[in-house]
Structures are given as structure tokens and as C-alpha cells.
Amino acid sequence: MHLALFIIFAGLCVAGALNLLLQRHPINSALSLIVVMSSLAVLYLLLGAEFLAAAQVIVYSGAIMVLFTFVIMLLNAGKEERTHGSRLAYIAGFPGAAALLGLLTYIFLSHSATFGQARLGEYLATTDDISRVLFRDLLLPFEVTSVLILIAILGAVALARKEH
């Protein structure tokens, strides 16, 4: 049951991500991104992170992607034009991506013996557990992050303000 759900939603996630890149119309790309976000939420749920799954849907699929579609609708963005891409991307991009992938694979394979194993649907992290970790064990990083976000908000307000 869990494995079937995992295969379905992992496939949906990858398909959405590919569609995001291949679609030429921005609204279709945005909708594919929503599919990716929502299927990620299901994957979180399968791993037992229920709060994270709900937050993923509310914040990413709900709020952030609504803003994306809002901007696309507001600008009434049309179809993209196909370009040949920059030469730099061909020269540096593909080898760079391949090198990164190789490096990650190497590290993963060389350390795979020390990783623990998580089975699907085995463990359930309740909201209580998450809040205990966030507000007690990791309180300082959490608060520092919130200050960082506050600074970002103030910066956005300062940039958007009209000149007097």
C-alpha cells in the first residue's frame, strides 16, 4: 500500500518536474510546479511527517504558488520563445552538472553503509514532536531564522515603498 502510493506520487513528482521544464506557457509550468509540490507533500506524509506535509500544501501549493499564478495572470505572460540557450551553459553547465551528480553519487555510495534505514509508513512524527524539537532543542537557530525572515520582509517593504 505504502509502496504503491510512493511509486505513484514519486512518478507524478518527476513527471511534473519534467513538464515544468518542457512546457512553453508559463501558466502550465506554474501548474506543473503545483503538482510537484503537492506530490512532495504526499511523500512527506508517507515518511510520517504529517505536519510538514500539511505545511507544504498550505505554504507552497497554497500561498506561494498562488502568488506565482497571480503574477503570471497580472502580466498576462504569453508563450516563451525558443532560444538556443547561451554558449556558456553548454560549455560549463553540462559538465558541471555531470560532475556534481558524480560527486554526490560517490559520497552517497561510499557512506551508504553508515546511513540508517527508514521504512515507509513505519514512523510517525507528530506535531508535538516537531514543536519540541523546534522550540526547545533548536530554539536559537529557529529564532535566528525568524529574524532573518523579518529582515527580508522589512527589505521588501523598503524597496516597494514610494519615494516621497
Binding site: 501558466i27 501548474l31 503545483i34 503537492s38 504529517e50 505536519f51 500539511a54 505545511a55 500544501v57 498550505i58 501549493s61 497554497g62 500561498a63 498562488v66 499564478t69 497571480f70 503570471i72 495572470m73 507528530t126 506535531t127
Partner: peptide
């Protein structure tokens, strides 16, 4: 009966706006 029932309702409400947004567009 789910542990995060309230969050699920909030999540579904926040996704529901796509119906209106996409219909208009």
C-alpha cells in the same frame, strides 16, 4: 479521523482558490 484535521482543512481551502484563479485566466 486524522491528527492534523485542522491543517488539512486549511490546506484544502488554500488550494481551492486555484479553481477561481484559473477560471478567470
Amino acid at each position: 479521523d486524522v491528527n492534523i484535521g485542522l491543517l488539512i482543512i486549511l490546506g484544502i481551502t488554500s488550494v481551492g482558490v486555484y479553481g477561481i484563479a484559473l477560471s478567470g485566466w
